[in-house]
């Protein structure tokens, strides 16, 4: 059954073409030296220079990064707590409701979440005079969405950690907080790191919540791009898109280099172990 007939190949190529065509076109047009985005006018880097000098874009980018870093950090801390509570404590007050709430952002469309939070924040502002729409509301809104993703990422790793490890640490005299920082956290560190990266990118990518919760003068990058893209084609957006493509490719390259290096190191270690085992086998057989 592992045939690959022409139909399968054609279909696969078409789907990949569909997926990659807009991205390739975007990158090519980012070098287009013409005011009309879709009319080819030769190669240029001038849109890159213009985007780099666009203060609105730069401010938005800085704001987006600030929000994303704060969101990712808060989400990972809250998500780790939530994951730990849900996997390690059999029952605690409000566990059912808590689990439900944690699933809400994964299930409901972001517009709903955005509207719910918007009405909450404007009501609070109406009643207490704060918070005003801006960094705080964006940060909280993004975190509400991202906590769930961080929690499920960390939870799936936490479930795999052998409870005997934590018990062993406790048995050897580690207090519960020491158990967490000396044994549990190192064991789930990779999951925590990838949850941080995931929530960072989710926050950087979030349009709807950002659009609903941003205030005057505090527009993160997606909101700026969104409002410009609504007006029509814009060479600077092509540039911004192309740059994210370069970043993704660079990240991919780094990851594969790192993985190859690790695989090589593993192989070297295993070879050394094998050699040692052979030596041991020889010496023990000659001794007996």
């Amino acid at each position: 059954m592992r045939r690959f007939p022409w139909l399968a190949t054609l279909w696969t190529v078409l789907v990949y073409g569909f997926l990659y065509l807009p991205i390739v076109v975007l990158v090519i047009y980012s070098f287009n030296d013409s005011r009309m985005v879709t009319v080819w006018g030769g190669w240029t880097l001038r849109w890159y220079a213009e985007a780099a000098a666009d203060q609105v874009v730069i401010d938005a980018l800085v704001l987006s990064l600030e929000i994303a870093v704060a969101t990712a950090t808060a989400s990972v801390v809250l998500g780790t707590c939530a994951a730990y509570a849900l996997t390690r404590y059999r029952r605690f007050p409000g566990k059912g409701l808590f689990t439900l709430l944690l699933n809400v952002p994964l299930v409901l469309p972001t517009v709903v979440l955005a509207m719910v939070l918007l009405l909450f924040f404007v009501s609070m502002e109406h009643l207490f005079g704060f918070p005003q729409k801006g960094f705080t509301t964006l940060f909280i809104g993004h975190t509400v969405m991202c906590v769930s993703y961080a929690a499920i990422t960390i939870m799936s790793r936490l479930r795999e950690v052998d409870p005997a490890l934590e018990e062993a640490a406790m048995d050897l005299g580690a207090r519960p907080s020491q158990v967490f920082f000396l044994v549990t956290l190192p064991a789930i560190f990779q999951a925590v790191a990838s949850a941080w990266l995931l929530t960072l990118s989710l926050s950087l990518d979030e349009v709807v919540i950002s659009a609903f919760l941003s205030g005057p003068g505090t527009s993160p990058l997606p909101v700026v791009i969104f409002s410009r893209a609504r007006l029509g084609l814009n060479p600077e957006i092509n540039v911004i898109g192309a740059v994210t493509v370069y970043l993704v490719l660079a990240g991919l390259l780094l990851a594969s280099v790192w993985m190859a290096r690790r695989a090589k190191q593993r192989a070297r270690e295993n070879a050394a172990l094998l050699r040692q085992a052979q030596v041991e086998a020889l010496t023990s057989s000659s001794a007996s």
Partner: peptide, 14 residues
């Protein structure tokens, strides 16, 4: 457990 003068060797070694 962390205050007992008792130590344990775990089945999975842990």
């Amino acid at each position: 457990p962390y205050e007992r003068p008792i130590n344990m060797m775990f089945q999975s070694y842990a």
